[in-house]
Design a protein around this nucleic acid. Sequence first.
DNA 1: CTGAAAGCGCTAACAT
DNA 2: ATGTTAGCGCTTTCAG
Lengths: 336, 336
Amino acid sequence: MPATIYDIARQAGVSSSTVARVLRGDTKGDRKDSAERAARIRQIADSLGYRPNLRARAFSEQRTKGVGLLYTDDAWVFEGVNDKVLQGLVRELRKHDHHLLLVPVDEGGDWEELLLGGHVDGCVTFQPLSEPVRNGIRQAALPCVLLGDNSDCDLPHIVVDDVAGSYSAARHLIALGHRRIGLYVHNTVKPHCSIQERFQGFETAMTEEGLEPNFWHCSEDEMISVLTRGGARPTGLICYSDLESTLIGHAMWQYGLKIPADLSLIGFNDKFATKYMTPPLTTVGFDANQIGTLGAELIIRSLTSDGLSEDQPPTSIQVKTQLIVRGSTAAPPKNA
Amino acid sequence: MPATIYDIARQAGVSSSTVARVLRGDTKGDRKDSAERAARIRQIADSLGYRPNLRARAFSEQRTKGVGLLYTDDAWVFEGVNDKVLQGLVRELRKHDHHLLLVPVDEGGDWEELLLGGHVDGCVTFQPLSEPVRNGIRQAALPCVLLGDNSDCDLPHIVVDDVAGSYSAARHLIALGHRRIGLYVHNTVKPHCSIQERFQGFETAMTEEGLEPNFWHCSEDEMISVLTRGGARPTGLICYSDLESTLIGHAMWQYGLKIPADLSLIGFNDKFATKYMTPPLTTVGFDANQIGTLGAELIIRSLTSDGLSEDQPPTSIQVKTQLIVRGSTAAPPKNA
DNA sequence: CTGAAAGCGCTAACAT
DNA sequence: ATGTTAGCGCTTTCAG
């Protein structure tokens, strides 16, 4: 039903190639007669409401201009600030005439056909890829960019400067006078490079001061029991993300304990709602939108450079963090 | 580079159609020789690592099995519980061998080619569509399903029972003894059917009791000034969404006012974090995931029924709400 | 600068 | 049941 270049060609009395060229803007218009002809072709195309058939084009060009967002964990995709990453990603992809597909790649996801059947030209991901997925995209030679993850060093990636982020968080607490400080990761958090790196920055700051870098990877109940026990309890807690901050802040409130009077709390990610917590959360922020934007640029680059320049190491970009001091941190209690 | 059905056909000494049929499972295998041949074909396909080329298939079948999620407002897509809707949507689409594309359709979105060029077979949306978009999908005869929106009655849609939700919220406050109750919508909220409907349920409950249904559509500062003024201030506030609850709850805290002692607060949507607010938020919840699941079914149905049965009115599904009573509501202050 | 023609890989109608 | 053939609509040589 929709008009094709052949319809236009027939009406204009020219060949389909001419139509294609004119519509693509490939005709210089040096000669007057061809300029006129081009104008007429464009006018006919308009009157017919012509639109290039993207399926045909994809078939012919052997690419869809589609990028798949690979994920295994529903919650993760929209967790924390990943929504902002996504926004930046989609917007930047659109600027380059590409689009984003959501592709769950877990067990039942039935992702193989979609991903390896050539319906996307490349992919990005927030999480470490499972072995089958990694093998799949490798065999299909599908370009892939890691966003906020560096689990595969062979792939270009964008990471947050987690080390510096947690270092600054720890430094902030130390400067306030805290000595017993811990890093808390909820036990449901999936393995991710940022866990180690956030620990590393934290550890560095602590050992610089001769302090012990306490680390907990457990349920919130266990964490709370640590926080509410007797004298040696931590007075400052750095959370792996704003999720932990939310849970801990809430539990403390339930126990009738005050933040920051009884515990100084620091989050990570600076997601929207943390500003409105009671008290507002001191947290480590970064430009999440930029991760998406840069990621889009990287994947577009891989898609554009026709497999040339294979030899250089994959690009690695680091996004800076910034400590945002709000109301959830203060000097430790006197008696501590 | 990847193997095609022709490669397989050549190796097996059969025609490409036979390969295609076997691979599609269209061969009954009644006769022994064909069963054997089918097995051999499958084996060759395996050894060649054959995968159907989805671009070619899309071209031939004249469809991509892609569904576009249309949106104009970045924040909205991931706002509130829309992330859950999205999860349900993607998962259910995958079950039916379809996938989801993120398609911003605002001014600079450059959406026309993608949407009208046949790169998606249908679309869904959370928000009222702009005039150009509506015209576009109408002309392209692109099936479209509205999720949590009914701005276009000609389109199948899934809505939340907002009327009942806000009615139950108001009833809850009335039962607690409140008389001065208001409904608050933040001024940045985009026009949406749920605003009117939430007002309607609220209004019904109030007028049943001869109470005045106060309504505010303003910035949080203005709202706060109303809440903190003298004697006639509202003692109960129903918020259009959890966003307003967050802002108001925070502002009250800043003013040194207590929830629910000084103000009973009710949210809408029951997004994850509201359970962890201080105090936990009483809110109107519903099964957001189901909106996505049902939406996927509807769009799949439109895509499958080949334009038959055009005459019946578009499907309209309503998702039920449930009031979740937590700590942010209580009897009004005595002196009020 | 233009036209003719091949090709992208699969589906489906038709003939055997 | 299998083979033959004609599309699907665009891009891209290759001649003219």
